[in-house]
Design a protein around this nucleic acid. Structure first.
Lengths: 119, 119
DNA sequence: TCTAAGGCCGTAGACTGTCTACGGCTATGG
DNA sequence: CCATAGCCGTAGACAGTCTACGGCCTTAGA
């Protein structure tokens, strides 16, 4: 089950993080730390990605060929690993978006079934 | 990551099944098998609940006090365990619905950020 | 010059909830 | 009598998240 450690912060649903990372990189290349912050910022602070989820996710995405990485230097003059989307990553993102909207739709039908009668 | 074993059937996202079960029981008392079928039917066959997910979920929901069960006899004249929502279960359902819509909203903001500039 | 704070990467291990793959019992229909 | 279907259940694999560490480097300030 999902817990609410903070009452305000949402835990991620298993499988959604990859999609969020991929999506974030569509804005442009970013280093890991920055990806986490971008997700948090874009979601108005609702989604918080822990480093113990983020880095393993980045590694598996790269291993699967959705991402490619490169060491560089951050704006803060720190060593940082920059990630960018590969073509396969873009395709994957679109599959995941599809699946996500189907899922939201399907669950929506159970939560709020088609009208007809007004329960 | 989430796999697509069938290309058409969606696997559940961890944590959503409990909400679906709770919601289904709002329609009225049902036995386990029937709950699975109801979810599948309500989602137009998109969501399929495996028995290895369903029964453990039912057990933990009951253990947490969201559900109460009672043995009975099904329409097919079979021994069946009927579940119904407790008051605590209703409250829990409403929390989970809340969380779900917040999550969908938060993820939506990342997927389709507020306008202003045109991407 | 040293220290504290913050930026950045990373891993280990616990945990949770899903799935696949079994097994079992009872009623009904051919 | 046997096959099928309805119904309940468990064991074990698996995947992805979390908490809780640890480490290195840079910059700012005492």
């Amino acid at each position: 089950m999902v817990k609410h450690p903070d009452e305000r912060r949402l835990e991620l649903l298993q499988g959604t993080l990859d999609m969020l990372i991929l999506r974030t990189l569509q804005w442009g290349s970013r280093h890991g730390h920055g990806i986490g912050q971008a997700i948090r910022a874009q979601s108005d602070d609702l989604l918080k990605v822990e480093t113990g989820s983020l880095y393993p996710a980045l590694h598996r995405l790269e291993k699967r060929g959705w991402l490619r990485s490169e060491w560089g230097v951050s704006e803060a003059n720190q060593r940082a690993k920059y990630y960018r989307l590969t073509a396969a990553g873009k395709a994957q993102l679109s599959r995941e978006r599809d699946r996500w909207s189907q899922l939201v739709d399907a669950i929506g039908r159970v939560l709020n079934p088609a009208p007809a009668s007004k329960e």
